[in-house]
Structure formats: structure tokens, C-alpha cells
Design a binder for these strands. Structure first.
Lengths: 279, 279
DNA sequence: TACAGCGATACCCGGGCGGTATCGATCGGC
DNA sequence: GCCGATCGATACCGCCCGGGTATCGCTGTA
């Protein structure tokens, strides 16, 4: 089994169409058919059921698709990390999404810079759902994630900071004067439907609330009295004066964790993680 | 970068000798030299420093070695799991080491067998240090591990059972009548030096105690008044009459966890894990 | 200084990868 | 019900690359 064969198989398994897959791979269709056939022969397993009209994955094919994706990620990561290690001045890529506790991040970077032999830290600002992938394929070395929202499968983590959540409301709203509130109460306000965030594919779930992409947009809509949201405390400090934050008593606490690929052996990453856990 | 090239690189990086590595790979030395040179050219990175007298790894080479090992494991796992998925009757390999809570294991297997669509579970009895590797390269799907002894890097786990530890002593020993004991007291008995277990390489650490490989051996030596050991409670039940178990008050508690590779997508494994967490 | 050890280089051969042309099966439209 | 379009498989060809042998060149040692 070779990497090229896995790349070919993933293309076919995703397109479910040899012609399209060949186009994506920038090769002709016949060599692709042969490569898949050879892969099947070597494994002694049928990966795809094909008629001349449709191509479908077998159960074994579905397993290999998932395995192959993670192998290809690991290969890309290996290439990046090897080249990174060859640089004289090491760099470390830290993936954070907007909304990450600014104060915590500043303290972490300051503390790390004071370390002897500290690498240059590049901040990679990204969307929440990209972080896992960035770590897996080596585009980032370390990330700050938020439990219980972000998935940490395949990652090692250390908890840094736990906080409650607050509801952000128009300052003039009747609920804005409450000292505490419950999730159900926020959800039950018909004139303030909860904002909707895009999923991985960039699509929005169905619902009455407005579609938003970032906190600035969101705060503007809340100030206009059009929506509301429940977010971690630290993201709701230093609000504009026409907004109010009310602690939500029964929202799950949010934990900021530092995460890295579990097989990571980078000196610089280990240093940063050690510094982070001592904060 | 191809799998074959990674296999070649790992061989050279481990042997630090092109000739030996070529022999191990069952190819001639010149193609091996060329393959490594090509890999270095493609990555634009020097992986090995070679004089005609010695070969050494560069920092980048050390990184690639570690990455390559895990990629090769992942490839082996992918092959095994794909072939497994192609079988009509799914099988599930559960890696356990001797000494694992027998009662817990029996309950788990019974409960799982009662599930609809349960796979055949094969028990793979192994040494503690093999389990991680068996899961990573796909020879096992699920394992029972013991924290804090076993490493769980790269694995997902669920805690099943926590218990204290006991010291196993000859029934006639003066400490055997105690109701509780401390680690320091056990360690301070000069006539009963703690038994030594082999490490990953099968070598024994230095020390005064006897070398042992399994509990049966060990119990025999304890009965002869030659050694002692501190083990989880459950491994010290139903002892032969000439042995006694004394709870050790300050030994760390041992947690039995069920562990699986974090990217695992096996139906049968998920079922087994679900059943286990409900026990 | 001569020799042994070891990686690199030169050169050759064969298999396999990728290309084009075409077949054969299947499904949809008229 | 037949024809044509679609799409994967097959046949055949050329070339690159992987693997082999022979040999070179450097280095450390006796």
C-alpha cells in the first residue's frame, strides 16, 4: 500500500466517480481504475461496488476511507514538521479562534517569551472547526480550544481556565437588569431569537435567529434588539455601553484547554505547554 | 513522499548504517542511498549527516523518524482494519494483560454478548507495554489499561473501575497480620526485596529483588519468603493459603480504563465501549 | 602508507505507471 | 424498444524509476 494509492482511493471514494476523481487527480481515468483494482487485489478486499452507472463504497471501503484520510493528514504533518525542524530559528504555530480569552493569551505569550530558547510564536487565527484539522495535518503545533464545544479526539490537552457563561442582551431589555438568569429564560424570549452560527460546511442551521459570522456582527445585532447569545464570561467583558452581560446560572462551564497532537515531540511545543500549565 | 521511502528512512535512521539497513530491507545498498537522497531532495532537508565512517541523524531527521514510525503504524492498522471490516462476521480484538480484573472482564464480555449484533470478541493476552502499540497498529481494537501505570497518549479512554492496592506477603510474615500498611514499610523490609519486572526491551532494572515475568511465578516466590509486591486489590483476591494481602494505605489508587485509538470508527468497538461505561 | 570499510556514483535492465484508443454494459429519451 | 450517451474496464504502448552490479572516493586505522 503506497501513499499515492491512498490518495487515489480517497479521491474516488469521495467523488464516487472514476472520471471526476481522475480529473481531480490530474491523471487519466484508466490508470486510476487500475490503481484501485491493484489496491483491492493486494488487500484482497472489495472497496468499491461499481456498475457502469454508479459507484458505491463497501463497508471495508468506508473503513479504509477514514483510515486513509488520517494517514494522508499524518503524512502532510510529517512533511511540514520535518521542514520546520530544519529551520535554524524554530517557529511555533498556535491556532486560536477569535473569542479566545485575550488576557489568558497575552499572559501565555509573555510568559513563554521569557523562557530561554523560546521559539517565535506565530498566531494562526481560524474558525473553531478548523483547529482540529490544523493540528492533525501539521499546519499548527498547538491550539487553544474550548470544552465542551470543541472536539479533542486524538489530541492531548491540559486545562488552563474554567469560567461560567453570560447572556448578552440589549442594555435596555427587561432581562438585562437581572443579576442571574437561566438558559430556558433566555431561549423563551420570542423577540430575541438566538443567533445562528455556520457549521463546518459554512451552512447555517434552520431557525428564526439571524445568521452571524463573528462577535462584532453579533454585538451589533444584539444592540439593535434583534437577537441574543450565550457566551463565555471572558468574551463578554468590556462591552459597548448599549449591551449588558447577565450570568447564566445553569449554562455549562467553559474550559479553555491547550491542545496538541498526542504524538507531538516538538521541543518548543512542550515548552509552551509547560509554561501554559504553570499560569 | 511514499510509504516505501519512509520504511527505508526508518531502517537507516535506526541502524545508522546504510549497509545494515539495506540488508534488513532485503535490497542492495545503492538504491537505498538513492532513495534517501531523493527523499531529502524532495523535502529540501538534510535528514542524515554522513561521512564515510559514520551516519548521524539531524534534528529534522529525528522529527521525521518519529513521524514516520507513527505513519507506518497507521498504515499497518489501516490494512488490518480494512480487511477486518470485509469479513462477514465482525471480530473485535480486546487486548488485556494478565492481572486485569477478572470479574470486570467477565461482566463486560457477558454484557456485550447480550447486545444485538455483537461481534465475536477475541481476547489478546499480552504484556502491559505492548498494548499501546497493538492499538496503534491495528492488531487490537480495544484494550483494558491501568492508570497511572500505562501510557494513554493518542488513545481515548473511559474509566471503568478504581481500586486501592494491596501488598502480597507470606502468610507467616509479621507484617501479614497488619490490617493496613504503608509503602515505606513494605519497601523497608530487607528480607523481602521488591520483585523486578522486565521493561519494554525485556531487560530487568538493577536491584536486589528477584526477576519475575508473571503473577504465578511471583506468588510462588512470595510464598517462599523471597520477595513481596504491591498490586491492585482485585489481583490479590483468592490467594493461595500461604499468602496474605494487606491494603496499602498510601499507594496511589489504580483505575482500570477502556481505551481505543482516538480516530476509531468501528461499530463493534463503539458498542463494546458503550456497554463498558454502563457497567 | 596501505588497506579495510562504507557511502556515492555510473550504468543497465525490467516492471509498472501513465497515456490514448476502444470496448461493453447500463440507463434514459424519443 | 431501440439508439445514444455515459462510464468503468481493457488493450496496448512508451518512458520513468526502482533495483541490480561494478566501481569510485573518502576516511580512519594498523
Amino acid at each position: 500500500m503506497e501513499i499515492r494509492e491512498l490518495r487515489y482511493f480517497v479521491a474516488v471514494a469521495e467523488e464516487l466517480h472514476f472520471g471526476k476523481a481522475a480529473e481531480r487527480l490530474e491523471i487519466a481515468q484508466p490508470p486510476l481504475s487500475r490503481a484501485i483494482a491493484r489496491l483491492e487485489r493486494q488487500l484482497a478486499v472489495t472497496l468499491l461496488e461499481r456498475t457502469s452507472r454508479r459507484v458505491t463504497l463497501t463497508a471495508a471501503g468506508a473503513v479504509l476511507l477514514s483510515e486513509a484520510r488520517s494517514i494522508l493528514s499524518a503524512v502532510a504533518a510529517a512533511e511540514r514538521r520535518t521542514q520546520q525542524a530544519a529551520r535554524s530559528r524554530p517557529r511555533l504555530v498556535l491556532a486560536v479562534k477569535s473569542g479566545t480569552v485575550g488576557e489568558l493569551l497575552a499572559k501565555l505569550l509573555d510568559a513563554y517569551r521569557a523562557e530561554p530558547g523560546a521559539a517565535t510564536v506565530d498566531l494562526l487565527l481560524c474558525e473553531a472547526h478548523q483547529q482540529q484539522e490544523l493540528l492533525q495535518n501539521g499546519q499548527a503545533d498547538v491550539a487553544l480550544l474550548h470544552l465542551p464545544f470543541d472536539s479533542v479526539a486524538g489530541l492531548d490537552t491540559e486545562a488552563l481556565y474554567t469560567e461560567g457563561q453570560v447572556a448578552i442582551l440589549p442594555a435596555s431589555h427587561r432581562l438585562a437588569r437581572r443579576s442571574r438568569i437561566r438558559v430556558a429564560e433566555v431561549a423563551a424570549v420570542p423577540e430575541l431569537p438566538m443567533a445562528r452560527w455556520p457549521d463546518r460546511g459554512g451552512n447555517y442551521p434552520e431557525g428564526p435567529g439571524p445568521e452571524v459570522r463573528n462577535l462584532t456582527q453579533l454585538f451589533q445585532l444584539i444592540a439593535l434588539g434583534l437577537t441574543t447569545v450565550i457566551i463565555p464570561e471572558s468574551a463578554g467583558t468590556d462591552l459597548r455601553p448599549d449591551l449588558a452581560a447577565v450570568p447564566v446560572s445553569d449554562a455549562p462551564p467553559v474550559t479553555t484547554v491547550i491542545a496538541w497532537p498526542s504524538q507531538s515531540r516538538l521541543r518548543a511545543a512542550a515548552d509552551l505547554i509547560r509554561v501554559a500549565t504553570r499560569l
